[in-house]
Design a protein around this nucleic acid. Sequence first.
DNA 1: AATGAATGAGTTTTCATTCAT
DNA 2: CATGAATGAAAACTCATTCAT
Lengths: 215, 215, 215, 215
Amino acid sequence: MERTKRPVHTSVKDEQLIEKRRTEMIRGAVQLFKQKGFHRTTTREIAKAAGFSIGTLYEYIRTKEDVLYLVCDSIYDQVKRRLEHIDLEQGTLESLKLGISFYFHVMDEMQDEVLVMYQEAKSLSKDALPYVLQKEVDMTGMLETLIQKCVDRGVLDMGEAHVHLIAQNIFVQGQMWGFRRWMLQKSFTLEEYIELQTNLLLEGVSGHKKKTALQ
Amino acid sequence: MERTKRPVHTSVKDEQLIEKRRTEMIRGAVQLFKQKGFHRTTTREIAKAAGFSIGTLYEYIRTKEDVLYLVCDSIYDQVKRRLEHIDLEQGTLESLKLGISFYFHVMDEMQDEVLVMYQEAKSLSKDALPYVLQKEVDMTGMLETLIQKCVDRGVLDMGEAHVHLIAQNIFVQGQMWGFRRWMLQKSFTLEEYIELQTNLLLEGVSGHKKKTALQ
Amino acid sequence: MERTKRPVHTSVKDEQLIEKRRTEMIRGAVQLFKQKGFHRTTTREIAKAAGFSIGTLYEYIRTKEDVLYLVCDSIYDQVKRRLEHIDLEQGTLESLKLGISFYFHVMDEMQDEVLVMYQEAKSLSKDALPYVLQKEVDMTGMLETLIQKCVDRGVLDMGEAHVHLIAQNIFVQGQMWGFRRWMLQKSFTLEEYIELQTNLLLEGVSGHKKKTALQ
Amino acid sequence: MERTKRPVHTSVKDEQLIEKRRTEMIRGAVQLFKQKGFHRTTTREIAKAAGFSIGTLYEYIRTKEDVLYLVCDSIYDQVKRRLEHIDLEQGTLESLKLGISFYFHVMDEMQDEVLVMYQEAKSLSKDALPYVLQKEVDMTGMLETLIQKCVDRGVLDMGEAHVHLIAQNIFVQGQMWGFRRWMLQKSFTLEEYIELQTNLLLEGVSGHKKKTALQ
DNA sequence: AATGAATGAGTTTTCATTCAT
DNA sequence: CATGAATGAAAACTCATTCAT
């Protein structure tokens, strides 16, 4: 897992202060991006929401896009930090199910943030994008590990590519719960969604094939 | 399936001309949106790409957002028109597989368009969004029908909610092929992707469970 | 009295048609100018209100300003035509009063038109303005004649400058009834206004001086 | 007398600076409006005439119309401030004459400004117009007081409506000196104009009736 | 004569960024 | 470090006018 960060220019020296100001800034920006998107949010609004002046904002970033980068970066970090509670090592179907369930819960709780990042990340410059994409790779990597362990322990039997794809599916289904909420959350509770998706993952529709069809 | 369109203001009367100019406009706009996104594309660029003056552009729309709406609307229409070749009625696993495969192929061919629509649709106003979302409903509806027929014919056995969710999964996996191409298309060819996803859909990971684990 | 008209270019030959089209055009334009002023009215709106296409509009004028000129010109002509019913020759106080009353009635009936011309005439180019101002001179000239006859007949005794000023006062008070309607028409009916103004003209406030004050 | 102002949005906080910049802005705008009218003046020209950039202009106003409002408001304030030197309380014919004379002198000196406001005020939105009209009411109110005092002191004898109308007449005659300068200022000096108008106000034409006619 | 599609210069307004205090 | 006034490039949109049909 990569840990590299793209440095964001600041003219302030005090590391603690930078941390503090950026936290305020990100919190404000997420709220704004959620409501109006990145492009429709002005730097003045971000400064105001963060509780300081436009001049001060620019002491901690160089361009508006830096804010977006910091926001995306921060969201991924939060998600990753939370996912670190998953026990990746066990390698049983039970732990796999638990891991998926935990991931879906995190996605549910961080819906807004994920939605923001999801929709706005594409506005990042060619410069910043790789850093963010790397985080995605890291995260699907965690899901891959979760599955791979089951393979390693002999509970599942499949190749690398297969593991990769399943991890991607789970990852996207987690986001889907948030960004297609207008469709999904009308039909399912989170728990139902988790159960159905897990079930489909494990059994496919085959669990629902007519007996006769199986003969 | 709804067919209603949100009317887009034009001061031109000749219906044929409107059709022609809008087609030119949409073609140009898709290219631009693909490269730089909706917000970073200017109306002048759209006009130029379409081959007419800024004044003429505004004879056929009222606001920049109208272009986005027309683009989204047109893409969905194209997708839907192509999907109409799927035989929804058969209700066999074979026809289901064929349908999915066909859908994935369409998504592959229209990758750019789908990506654009996928990323920019959220910039539509509260006013226009419902029309576009309705198209999504229509399209997942087609996939639902495809599955439902299998249930009706007794090939599959599941409830409505279940059918609904599977349709959504397929739908998103189709888009995923495009919008996560940077990850997926490194690992799989389209045909591999289709085969793996179809397989997962039908069997889940259970087809890959170790014999011993099944006992 | 001058009769000169500033020619307005037209590419149409048929004089009757020109007359007809321009009448339609002026009627429509007055309504629009009344509502939104000259600058906020578009040539397209004028054409539409007149009942023909923008192309046709430009067959009968050369620039938008021509419309304004034609409107102003037409309004003055209408006013003048109506004022020709006044008997300018009598030279009695009675005929003076009648003339003023008649003028005020005309101003009341043509309030909207006068208001338009009054507010928009300043938008005429240096080129067209003199023609319109000449019409004002003509009209105050009529009022001057009305008064001068009283002087000539020995009913009043005053110099030319004096006559000139009184004519101007009357002229402006007539317009005032229209353009300050929001103040005046709350307090007076037209007849009251006429009576009070006429009375003031003839007697000044002296008719209202306390007897004692006069001694 | 109302003193309420319609607030005009500014993103600048320093009150003194606002005052200063707006003064510069108004000075520039009056010159421009005088030459070309409100509609033909661009915001860029206003900014330039005021001595700052277009961006800075918009730090002190929200829309172009705000400039017009500020101009009108400022002109009225100037006029009112100057008229406050009139002694309204005396209630003698002499003080009435003096007051009128003073008002006419103010109008003469502020001719350009009054002309601008007079011709452009109608371009104000329904929103801002009442504030400006109120100022007119205030000003005619001052003239009314001037006359009413004479009535109160028993020097004149007339009803409220009568007082109201006379105030309006004087008010408009003051403006008339400016907006009909092309006619009036050819024939009269300011002093002549004042004397004639005052005389007419007090005596009407009756002072000019032939003796014989009076018998 | 009539039409209306095409044009593009011109307008208002916004907003990321800078820099003097 | 913090502030917020100043800047001007750039954007969306309008509309008088033309001209081919």
